[in-house]
Design a protein around this nucleic acid. Structure first.
Length: 572
DNA sequence: GCCGTTTTCGGCCCGACTGTTTTCAGTCG
């Protein structure tokens, strides 16, 4: 059983326990394990075979026993019984904003409501308002919550939310009334998908800021508007909240609203032990109530003897401990990137000529790009035949003569066929500067088959890079069943580099796998998979994911200069 | 249900907002 499946079950358990009004700390214990499982690179199955499950943080006696039962029998008696005790539709009520566990169980007890559909009917018949603790307003709010749920399209890709947020920030920045401004929340942490956009502002005239914000053209609906906080829904369904805070609280507010929640909880626990209290206004001494920090985010961390922790790391995955030990990574930044190692031209399914792409790359101050068009068996993507590839190499040589010292690397995104053989023979692969291998068909193979298939390709000495190693496409396709732990180990053994594909819907490797690669000493390459010169810009999201994966310059191949890069590529 | 440089038992983050209440419970981030 995979970690994600176990996490799903524990998440359900947490929800049901909440509805049943169980001890909230027990609920939190299950929620914590869910989070830990989601950020665990290694499969629990493997941990179970080699060592104690209780080594996993948040896993104690009880949960260890439950995991064991799931792994050995595929089922969990406790969960089955729990499910029986609560109608299945009740859990989905929790996804309506305004409806929490207490309301859900009240609705069920009093009106027999078992699903969102039931609830909507009851609301429209005005049967809610007479329940104890409810009223007309609550009824309206629940209806609004249901409508919001229907309209909400789930989380948005970072690649879409980020430019949107930036354009809002740019519009507000122009105002002389705006002093400081920053995004917060998961967007600032650069998570791969974003639930809503939070923007913080300091201003002496909040009303003016709000007025301008609320008049932005992309707004579909205003949910709330006040002096210090306004919420809107943008076209496309994303919610944006703007808050105005006082200058001497800006740092504390930024820290608070950036999260993540588990990161903040851990910080506040730490603060308590030192007789301090942290909230969105600042850091205070508990006894005297004296404020000791708040203006700058750095100061908030400093009161706990911590260095500044970059937002991308704030997921409670050991960053606080690393800060205490002084072992936080020096994260990679965009300006360290010297080139793009995965670009398509119009020779296959891209839309630009090699020269255009090279010119665009030079504008980004790169020293090189690798043209890696598809190989012959990928007919749908205009895969190149051996003959085409040779002609393409000739064209690349000509471009290089003109653009020297900039360099276009001749490459290929060679398809790994279903049996693990490559789409080109060695004698043509060896002509290339860089070979990246990838799977494009047969995604549904079982774990062992697909893992062995990929490993077979990695063993080819002409293959430098494994591209988009898990094959996921956010919102579209699950990763294949590949055993990433085995792939990372094999990458170490064969000297293969693992790609972090920067295309916003891929970001594959993800943050967790990046970190595992680093721990094993496997270098990562960054490539945008651009099919258009504009898409070279998505390198930014790749770098963000690398940062979330704790990667430094030295962990990333294309921070190397052209000369150093060529040396390494030849060695293979 | 977890966890321990104050603890193997008794803690477990913090405040705003809202609506329904006359002092607070529920929800949210």
């Amino acid at each position: 059983m995979r970690n994600s499946e176990i996490a799903l079950i524990f998440n359900q358990i947490a929800d049901i326990l909440e509805i049943k009004g169980e001890n909230p700390f027990r609920v939190r214990a299950y929620q914590k394990v869910v989070r830990v499982l989601e950020s665990l690179a290694e499969e629990v199955e493997e941990i179970y075979q080699t060592r104690e499950l209780k080594n996993i943080p948040g896993v104690g006696e009880g949960i260890a026993r439950k995991i064991e039962e799931l792994l050995t029998t595929g089922k969990l008696q406790y969960y089955e019984e729990l499910k029986e005790s609560v109608p299945s539709g009740l859990v989905e009520l929790l996804s309506i904003s305004e409806v929490g566990p207490r309301t859900a169980s009240l609705l069920h007890k009093e009106l027999g409501i078992k699903s969102v559909k039931d609830l909507e009917k009851a609301v429209r018949k005005h049967r809610i308002k007479d329940l104890p603790g409810m009223g007309e307003k609550t009824e309206e709010n629940i209806l609004r919550g249901i409508e919001l749920l229907k309209r909400r399209k789930g989380r948005m890709l970072l690649g879409k939310a980020y430019p949107l947020a930036q354009s809002i920030i740019d519009s507000l920045k122009k105002l002389s009334e705006v002093d400081r401004i920053s995004s917060a929340g998961s967007l600032r942490r650069m998570k791969e998908t974003i639930g809503d956009i939070d923007i913080l502002v300091t201003s002496k005239k909040p009303a003016k800021v709000m007025e301008v914000f609320l008049s932005l053209p992309q707004i579909a609906e205003v949910l709330a508007s006040g002096e210090t906080k306004s919420s809107v829904i943008m076209e496309g369904g994303l919610q944006v909240d703007v808050r105005v805070v006082k200058p001497d609280s800006f740092g504390a507010a930024l820290q608070y609203f950036t999260g993540s929640k588990p990161h903040n909880i851990k910080l506040r626990e730490l603060a308590n032990k030192r007789g301090l209290k942290i909230n969105e206004y600042g850091v205070f001494k508990i006894k005297s109530g004296k404020k000791v920090a708040g203006r700058k985010e750095e100061d908030v961390y400093a009161t706990l003897n911590l260095p500044y922790i970059p937002p991308e790391l704030r997921e409670e995955r050991g960053e606080i401990e690393a800060g205490q030990e002084g072992s936080l990574p020096k994260l990679i930044s965009l300006k360290s990137i010297k080139g793009d190692l995965h670009v398509h031209s119009k020779w296959s399914d891209g839309s630009d000529a090699i020269m255009e792409l090279a010119e665009a790359a030079r504008k980004l101050k790169y020293q090189y790009i690798a043209i890696c068009d598809h190989s012959k068996s990928l007919g749908v993507a205009g895969g190149l035949s051996e003959r085409d590839l040779e002609r393409q190499i000739a064209e690349i040589r000509k471009v290089n003569e003109k653009l020297h010292p900039f360099r276009v690397l001749a490459g290929s995104e060679v398809d790994i066929r279903s049996d693990g053989r490559l789409d080109f023979e060695d004698d043509i692969l060896k002509e290339l500067d860089i070979v990246i291998a990838a799977i494009h068909t047969g995604f549904k193979q079982d774990r062992e088959t697909i893992t062995n298939r990929i490993i077979k390709a990695m063993k080819n000495k002409f293959v430098h890079v494994l591209a988009h190693p898990t094959g996921r496409v956010l919102h579209e396709r699950e990763p294949y069943q590949v055993d990433m732990e085995a792939i990372i180990k094999e990458a170490k053994r064969t000297g293969t580099f693992l790609e972090l594909n920067a295309f916003p819907a891929r970001l594959d490797l993800n943050d967790v796998h990046c970190r595992r690669a680093r721990e094993e000493g496997v270098m990562v390459t960054l490539g945008t998979d651009a099919h258009h010169k504009m898409q070279l810009d998505s390198m930014y999201y790749g770098v963000a994911t690398a940062r979330r994966g704790w990667l430094e310059d030295k962990d990333i191949l294309n921070t190397l200069s052209l000369k150093e890069l060529l040396k390494i590529l030849k060695r293979n």
